[in-house]
Design a protein around this nucleic acid. Structure first.
Lengths: 196, 196
DNA sequence: ATTCGACTTAAATACGAAATGAGTCCAGAT
DNA sequence: ATCTGGACTCATTTCGTATTTAAGTCGAAT
């Protein structure tokens, strides 16, 4: 395991170097040479640890994604009611999004990179999101806190609304407050707008 | 007025020709020559009626936008409860969207055209959307049908959720049903997910 | 007032030459 | 055997320049 740790450590050095470079200069403008010199290795050494540049990029995305999922999981756990869990989920996601968007949301700096693995990462995250929401909803239903006709469709509806929140975050230059809009959306989600 | 009608008619011919060409080939691949020959006029004649190619494009977008607004207005009027009006609004918008997106939603065929007037048209439509939603909400509140803390924020929340619905419509190739997701979202909007 | 052919000019395209950078190979170090 | 990196290949990108295209103007004709 010692040898393997050593290998892992070197991989991490590479990924960390790549991460910073990608964040600064984007995928295209970052060369393997750059990553190598920042990692203090020869370029070919990178190819001992990773198959390709895309492979490194994929790892960076994967790592970022896991970090967000970690944060989300943690904050969901800390919240004690199903409502608070949803609040936590949405707020955590929104706060982290700007950073994550640097990597796998097409529109920010490198536009429309149609990499298959970016699409795949997005898909994976969507699955994670759906599962998280479904869990929370189900817990809420068992609690008696929520009343939902179709859990899956409801989760999808929430996911889509969150997606709508992403949009202004990505195109707007000034980071609009959003705060009150999110509050408003969550309020609708829980209470609806019909009189009762 | 006769003269003016004649002028309007010729403008309409040009706009219609341009519309079809833009829809087929996009803004960049459509030349003024193309528009002229489709309109059976000389190219310079176009400049008698319009200031520039962008100007024609702006008119096309404007016209499309007005058509959608007309449809929306009509269908809102036909619906008799506030709930039905919101239903009508959302469904009408979604049905029409694919077509409209050809013109002013960046992602479809000509990517990321950062034309100022496209952004402006979007902004105008958003204003229209907000006003429509605010009206419906206000009517619903007066009716006693709706109970809403902040009308404006609520309208914005709904607009954002609708924006989220657009996303899969634009990137997904197969026109997913969406039907049940929309139903689900509207259900949440009205009833919320909390037990009552 | 309206139309169009002829023209100008800026931008897009085409293309070959030069440079860059992803990925390979192999010899040598640990 | 596990690693490392210098030297290489070759596909892609960049660059400089010649050529074409197409937006927009002008002035004469109707």
């Amino acid at each position: 395991m010692n040898i393997n740790n050593e290998k892992d450590a070197r991989q991490q050095i590479i990924i960390t170097a790549a991460e910073e470079l990608f964040a600064h200069f984007g995928l295209r403008k970052t060369t393997m040479e750059d990553i190598a010199s920042k990692s203090k290795m020869g370029k070919s050494t990178l190819y001992y640890y990773f198959k390709s540049k895309e492979d490194i990029f994929a790892e960076v995305i994967h790592k970022e994604s896991k970090i967000l999922q970690g944060k989300l999981g943690k904050n969901i756990q800390l919240a004690d009611t199903p409502q608070a869990k949803i609040d936590a989920y949405v707020y955590t996601r929104m706060k982290h999004l700007k950073k994550l968007s640097n990597y796998y949301l097409t529109l920010t700096d490198e536009y429309l990179e149609q990499y298959a693995f970016v699409e795949q990462a997005r898909q994976h995250f969507l699955e994670y999101e759906m599962n998280s929401l479904i869990s929370i909803l189900q817990e809420g239903i068992e609690d008696g806190a929520f009343q939902v006709a179709d859990v899956e469709e409801t989760a999808r509806a929430i996911a889509i609304a969150i997606k709508g929140l992403e949009y202004p975050l990505l195109i707007q230059k000034e980071p609009n407050d959003m705060e009150s809009t999110i509050t408003s959306m969550l309020n609708i989600l829980f209470k609806g707008i019909e009189s009762r």
